[in-house]
Design a protein around this nucleic acid. Structure first.
Lengths: 358, 358
DNA sequence: GTTAGCACTTATCTTTCTCGAGTGCTAACA
DNA sequence: TGTTAGCACTCGAGAAAGATAAGTGCTAAC
């Protein structure tokens, strides 16, 4: 889409600068490029090219007598042109397979574990995301008595997860009443979104329950609670400490700002919720409207099953993150996860492809 | 228990030093004490006393020409002698009441919310803890079919929480089989700890299930998973970013080390699991064996219901945290939480004491 | 036991200086 | 027209030096 206006040599130089900067973190100069990056022309020529690349917006100069640093546009060019895949080492594949062997059955745990692995392999911070899902409904209700004064309400949601709430009933409740209650809930409330549960419906429920009508109010409250829980998404970080080893986060204020935003988590969740479903998404600095990301990059991929987005895993790190490695890691991990999730009938230490270990 | 060897004046001076240091964060000198802290003797006398307090281990001197700073022992003295309670402001009480009005029913959520409030009030980092509980058992099993090939296994645990797992059965499963299965589980497995579920028991189960014996293995796996989940405790932080505003965490390496340890979380969980149940626990720096805490302090209180520890809330911050305020906050919060948990039958915006708002 | 006074210590802050990497520009060259 | 060598210039990083001031320990007087 862009980068077409660049000559072959400019591309080569730009790529070399990005890679050098990713490795070292320092601004890179013309002489260095000539000597260590196989650019076959003189430093003066490189300087000329660099000046042009800067005026085109691909490079930046921290100050007059420093080398160049890629701009966000520069990184974008690099990421978009990343053709050669990073080959995972045996150790990294091993790590992923170890994860798969654990065969957890709960999607939450799987995502968190995967993000931990991603963090370990890439040495950046891993994130596990359950996106907002505003259209989740409760498909089915069940209930059990715990004792004469409380029971467990089990709710099966349209996204496949199951939630429970303890409900306490001061006046006592019988098994028979619980049965009546769940039948009612199943016919009146199942399939509705939060907005769908209107006052008339609640009143109907209360009427139908007759003498036990006062039960309804706390139950509706529980239902709202559960649906809000799903609705609001989740964001879990792992290996946050790793970021601190990069000089770009040495400035405590910057790190603090980011931490605060990650804790609020709305912005990141929005970002992910709006993402294209089946691609790896790479968000570079201020490309997104999320202010906090200004000096960081976020790479993530949604995990999809039967067309439904169950969550996402990703990596967050400095602008100059090792995109080749990160992209390969996320691609590899998410591929395996998809296998694991779509086909959780694997039975032993072998994965679907019959490959073992390594 | 100690501090008795100190003269009244020494105590006064020590207390003044701790408070001054908590406020400002800088080493405090003799002249400052005389002029701003109402110590009614000359700076020379104060210097003499300070020298003695130092040799007794209550104070430390960063370098020769600096003032004194409390040692961990000094803080310990201060905390132990904290008689005057910090009075909560109306705003802070308001904050707590807001929390109570939300009336969440799930203990996890309650703890996390409480730790958020604690963090907001004290301006340190809040922590919500579910301690390890190695003696939890599953009290009761129930199951529902989702479709012909999978069902939900509901487990009610001895600590009152309820867990569910989705189990997939490739050969299909009938409602009747599920009923048989849960009956079996209830008679063979309920009440057992992980260690109690021995191979013979598993084999019995398989035998009893006859043709559906292959069901048992994934179910046992789910059971282990759930019990391990409970077993391993949980630790959630809130307001981590707040810590970064204190100069003691300006050193990125130190903060990083702490972050890493909080992420591993075992050590902190041990600490909490071993704590006295009904006290506010104050752990000052290296008093604990937890290395990470070397330059930090942890204040927490277990939340107990019917003699069982459900969790704990607390605050983590620099050694020079405002102990008076933190202790009062945690005491206030945990008191209210206990009310909320032991009596979750409150019905509207008024709390148990009939007090409203403020 | 307390206090005034004084010499001494030492972190911190500012200023100054040097060093070197890297640039832009000009002029020569292919 | 595109490339390269050469050179003056810029500017940040870091070291060195000096000034400042807070705070101490000690001695001697009260």
């Amino acid at each position: 889409m862009f980068g077409n206006e660049l000559s072959e040599r400019k591309r080569l130089i730009l790529k070399a600068i990005v890679e050098a900067h990713i490795e070292g973190g320092d601004p890179v100069g013309s002489k260095y490029l000539m000597e260590n990056r196989n650019i076959t022309c003189s430093s003066a020529t490189i300087r000329n090219e660099m000046a042009e690349l800067e005026s085109l917006g691909y490079l930046e100069q921290p100050h007059t007598s420093a080398g160049r640093v890629p701009s966000e546009l520069g990184y974008r060019f690099y990421v978009d042109s990343l053709a050669q895949e990073y080959a995972m080492t045996a150790r990294e594949i091993e790590e992923i397979n170890k994860l798969l062997k654990m065969k957890m059955t709960e999607i939450d745990q799987i995502l968190v574990m995967a993000s931990k692995v991603a963090s370990a392999i890439t040495n950046y911070t891993g994130i596990a995301i359950k996106p907002r899902r505003s259209n989740v409904t409760i498909e089915r209700f069940e209930g059990f008595a715990i004792d004469s004064r409380s029971f467990v309400l089990v709710m099966m949601l349209s996204n496949g997860s199951v939630k429970t709430r303890n409900v306490r009933v001061d006046n006592g409740i019988s098994t028979e009443t619980i049965g009546r209650l769940t039948t009612l809930l199943n016919s009146y409330v199942s399939g509705l979104t939060t907005d769908g549960i209107t006052l008339p419906i609640i009143m109907d429920l209360e009427r139908e329950m007759g003498g036990d009508g006062e039960l309804i109010s706390p139950i509706i409250k529980s239902i709202y609670e559960v649906m809000n829980e799903i609705d609001s998404g989740e964001l879990k970080l792992s290996g946050l400490d790793r970021l601190l080893q990069y000089p770009e986060y040495a400035d405590t204020d910057r790190f603090r700002e980011m931490l605060g935003a990650l804790e609020k988590k709305d912005e990141i969740l929005n970002l992910v919720s709006e993402a294209k479903d089946d691609d790896i998404n790479v968000i570079i600095g201020s490309e997104s409207a999320v202010k906090v990301m200004d000096h960081s990059a976020l790479v993530f991929k949604p995990i999809v099953k039967n067309g439904k987005t169950l969550g996402a895993i990703g990596v967050i790190g400095p602008l100059r993150m090792d995109y080749a490695k990160v992209l390969a890691t996320i691609a590899g991990l998410s591929g395996r996860l998809a296998d694991l999730i779509n086909e959780n009938s694997l039975t032993d230490g072998e994965d679907k492809n019959g490959r073992k270990g390594i």
